[in-house]
Each structure stands twice: as structure tokens, then as C-alpha cells.
């Protein structure tokens, strides 16, 4: 696999398809993002089951440049979502798709988002390296399990998780879709929520961060893994993914032409919650 990625990368440089390539290299603890500017360096590329950062996060830094990206399923879906939101131009991005074998933590356990992954193979790519992999049929068993808990228990869980947060915003920065010029937490006027670690402020952050991902999250899980405090946050975004799918029939990152679900509407949308 690694050889094939390098080969495709080399080819892309040779054919002038890319000026820079974002991929994974050998880090000191695990795979680390690397930025390759000449074809001689493509041998630095690697692929293993620690490549869990979503490389699409870096793409906006290279806007206007022909940028290649080594993308697993979720990364590629984020690229598509960014294109759909007009943050990138399709022709500026060259996707070297890698069917993902699932990412693992340092103990060798597969991550939650990988366990239920529906699109290990990038749905959109310029070149695909390796054999397509079938995903699982996503039915959000973890979300359903959480939903079946009594509301008080759910609130308790939400509060306990939020309490661990130190507001370092690693989740935000690791997310390709968190690209706002000014994040709502940083806004002073209006000041949506207070700084500091009071429970309600932390809850505010977690709720709105998740809300802002509705219809945009590719379920890569980089946010949760980036968290130094091990705060569980995927259960929130996964719920919204499930809702967006059930309510609007939308799955993020499959079609660069499709409008984001909250940027459009249907006259047939359900409205039983309306008085």
C-alpha cells in the first residue's frame, strides 16, 4: 500500500497535477502530517493504522495551489464537504484515495468511528490506491443505545464529559469543517458564552460545536482523538449525522454539487414539533 501511495504521488508530481502534497509521514509516536513539495520526498510517505488525523484540515492553507491529499474515506468526504461549502475548488485538489483499513489507538483498539464506518473507500477521488473496501451499513447502534437511556442519565453523561474539557480547542482545530474566521466562543461582542470552565459554559461550547457540524461532519473522529482530556464528543456529532440522514436524507461528503442540508430545504420537511 505504502509503495502504491508513493508511486501515485510521484506520478502526480511528474504530471504536474500537484505542487504540494499533504500526506502522512513517520512521526515519533505515530503517523504525522507531512507536506511534500518535491517528488524526491515522496518516499517519506507512509500508511498505517495511526493515520487518524483528518488531513483535509490543512487544505485551506494552500488555497490557490494545486494541492494533493492522501485521503482515507472520511478525509475525502471532508474535502467534498469543503468543496460543497465553496471553501475549495474541486480542480485545485487532487485526491489520492486510500481505502481505509480502520484506524487504531495506541492499545490497538479500533476507533468508534471506524468500527461503524460506512465509507472506508473515498466516495470521490482522482486516483484510488488499492482495492475498494466495503463499509458497514451505518445504523448508529451507539447513538440508539444512548437515546434509550433516561433523559436524566443522558444529561449526567453529557455533563460529566463536558466537565473534563479545558477549552484548548484541539477538537475545533483538528476539524476540517471548523474553519470560521472567528469562532463563536472567541467573539466578545456579542459574548455568547463566558470564558472559563463553569459547567454551563462548557456545555454551551459542546452543544454549539456539535450543532455547527450538523450536515457537515464526515464522522472522521479526529476531534475526539485530538482531545487531550479524552472528552467524548463523537456521540453528539454522530447523533446529528443520524438526524440529518433521517430527516433530510442527507449524507455528508458524497457529492460536491449537493447543497449542505441546512443550506437548503424541502417543502416536505417534517414539522411535527411545530405547535
Amino acid at each position: 500500500m505504502i509503495e502504491r501511495i508513493r508511486e501515485e504521488a510521484r506520478k502526480a508530481f511528474e504530471e504536474g497535477k500537484i505542487e504540494i502534497l499533504i500526506g502522512f509521514g513517520r512521526g515519533t509516536l505515530r503517523a504525522t502530517p507531512i507536506f511534500i513539495e518535491k517528488k524526491e520526498d515522496v518516499d517519506k510517505l507512509i500508511w498505517d493504522d495511526t493515520c487518524w488525523i483528518n488531513l483535509a484540515t490543512y487544505l485551506r492553507r494552500f488555497r490557490g495551489k494545486k494541492t494533493g491529499i492522501v485521503a482515507k474515506g472520511c478525509d475525502a468526504r471532508s474535502v467534498v464537504a469543503l468543496i460543497a461549502e465553496k471553501q475549495l475548488k474541486r480542480e485545485d485538489v487532487y485526491i489520492i484515495g486510500v481505502p481505509c483499513q480502520g484506524m487504531k489507538n495506541e492499545k490497538g483498539e479500533e476507533f468508534l468511528s471506524c468500527r461503524y464506518c460506512e465509507y472506508p473507500t473515498p466516495p470521490v477521488y482522482d486516483v484510488l490506491v488499492g482495492e475498494k473496501r466495503e463499509g458497514k451499513k451505518e445504523n448508529y447502534p451507539d447513538v440508539s443505545e444512548f437515546e434509550s437511556m433516561p433523559p436524566e442519565k443522558r444529561w449526567e453523561f453529557f455533563s460529566e464529559e463536558a466537565k473534563k474539557c479545558i477549552r484548548c480547542y484541539a477538537c475545533r482545530e483538528a476539524c476540517p469543517m471548523c474553519y470560521c474566521e472567528e469562532c463563536f466562543v472567541d467573539s466578545l461582542d456579542p459574548r455568547w458564552l463566558e470564558p472559563g470552565l463553569s459547567l454551563s459554559s462548557l456545555q454551551f461550547w459542546h452543544l454549539v460545536r456539535a450543532y455547527h457540524q450538523a450536515g457537515r461532519c464526515s464522522d472522521c473522529g479526529a476531534c475526539e482523538r485530538a482531545c487531550p482530556m479524552d472528552v467524548k464528543i463523537l456521540y453528539l456529532t454522530r447523533k446529528l449525522n443520524k438526524e440529518v440522514r433521517e430527516l433530510f436524507g442527507f449524507v455528508t461528503g458524497l457529492d460536491p454539487e449537493a447543497l449542505p442540508p441546512l443550506g437548503t430545504y424541502s417543502t416536505e420537511d417534517k414539522e411535527e414539533f411545530i405547535l
Binding site: 484548548c168 482545530e173 470564558p195 485530538a226
Partner: peptide, 25 residues
């Protein structure tokens, strides 16, 4: 610096980083 995401994880966990913000509540 290219790969840095500019999150605050390193500085918040760092035992010697002491920078702070002041705000009125």
C-alpha cells in the same frame, strides 16, 4: 510549524506555560 493545528493542548498541559487572559464577568 506547518503541521501545527494551533490548538492550545500543548500550552495548557505544559507545566511551565503561564500565559493568561483577563476578562470581566
Amino acid at each position: 510549524s506547518r503541521k501545527c493545528l494551533n490548538c492550545g493542548a500543548c500550552t495548557f498541559l505544559c507545566p511551565t506555560c503561564y500565559c493568561f487572559d483577563i476578562q470581566d464577568l
